[in-house]
C-alpha cells in the first residue's frame, strides 16, 4: 500500500499537486490518498505532496506526521518542509519559482522556505540559486526518509519511481 498525504487545503490544488503523484504511484501498487489533517494510515511507503505557494495551513499540523519518523517517506516541497521541521532542521525564508539547474539536470521549484545546511540529512543533490548552492534532495542519515525541495513529478519522475520501486512495489 502506498499512502499519498496531501498538504493542500484547497481541492483545486490537489488536482495539481496530488493527482500527478497518484498517476505515477498507481504503477507500483494500491494507492490511498489522505489529508494532512487526517491520522496517518499504515502503508509500505508514504509520499507527502507539495501545495500552492500561498498555502501554509499544513504548518499547523506538523505533529500529525510524527509517526512517520521511522517509515519509508518521500516528502516533496511542502512535504520536504514538514520533514525538515519534524527533524528540527532550520528553515530559512528563501523564495524560488521556476526551473533551476541541479547536479542531476534541471528541476522545477516552487518554495518560499528551504534548509540551507541540514544536519540530520545527507545531500544527494544540490542546486545553484541566486542566493547560493543549496541541498535540494536529501536523505535522513539513519532512516529511509527522503525529501526534495523541487517537484520531481515535473522533470525528475525517476526519483519518485525509484523510491516506490524500492519500498512499495510487489507489496499489497
Amino acid at each position: 500500500m502506498i499512502s499519498i498525504i496531501s498538504t493542500c487545503s484547497e481541492r483545486l490544488s490537489e488536482k495539481e499537486f496530488v493527482d500527478p503523484l497518484v498517476r505515477i504511484a498507481k504503477k507500483f501498487g494500491p494507492v490511498k490518498v489522505t489529508s494532512y489533517k487526517d491520522d496517518i494510515i499504515k502503508a509500505d511507503a508514504y509520499i507527502i505532496s507539495g501545495t500552492v505557494l500561498a498555502d501554509f495551513d499544513y504548518e499547523n499540523y506538523v505533529e500529525n506526521f510524527s509517526d512517520l519518523k521511522k517509515e519509508n517517506v518521500l516528502g516533496i516541497c511542502a512535504g520536504y518542509q514538514i520533514l525538515m521541521s519534524l527533524f528540527g532542521e532550520r528553515l530559512s525564508e528563501k523564495k524560488y519559482i521556476g526551473v533551476a539547474q541541479t547536479d542531476i539536470g534541471k528541476a522545477y521549484f516552487l518554495f518560499s522556505k528551504i534548509v540551507e545546511r541540514p544536519t540530520n540529512f545527507t545531500t544527494l543533490v544540490a542546486a545553484e540559486f541566486p542566493f547560493g548552492k543549496i541541498p535540494v534532495y536529501v536523505k535522513h542519515k539513519s532512516h529511509n526518509i527522503f525529501a526534495t525541495a523541487f517537484h520531481p513529478e515535473v522533470y525528475n519522475v525517476e526519483i519518485i519511481e525509484d523510491f516506490l520501486r524500492r519500498y512499495a512495489e510487489g507489496r499489497i
Binding site: 488536482k15 500552492v52 500561498a54 498555502d55 519559482i97 515535473v154
Partner: peptide, 23 residues
C-alpha cells in the same frame, strides 16, 4: 507558462491554481 503565472500571482497576493497540470 506556469512559472510566469506563479510569479505574477505571488507578486499580487493571489493563489495560483493549475488543475490540469501534467494531466
Amino acid at each position: 507558462q506556469a512559472t510566469n503565472f506563479e510569479k505574477a500571482c505571488d507578486n499580487v497576493g493571489l493563489w495560483c491554481f493549475n488543475p490540469i497540470w501534467l494531466n
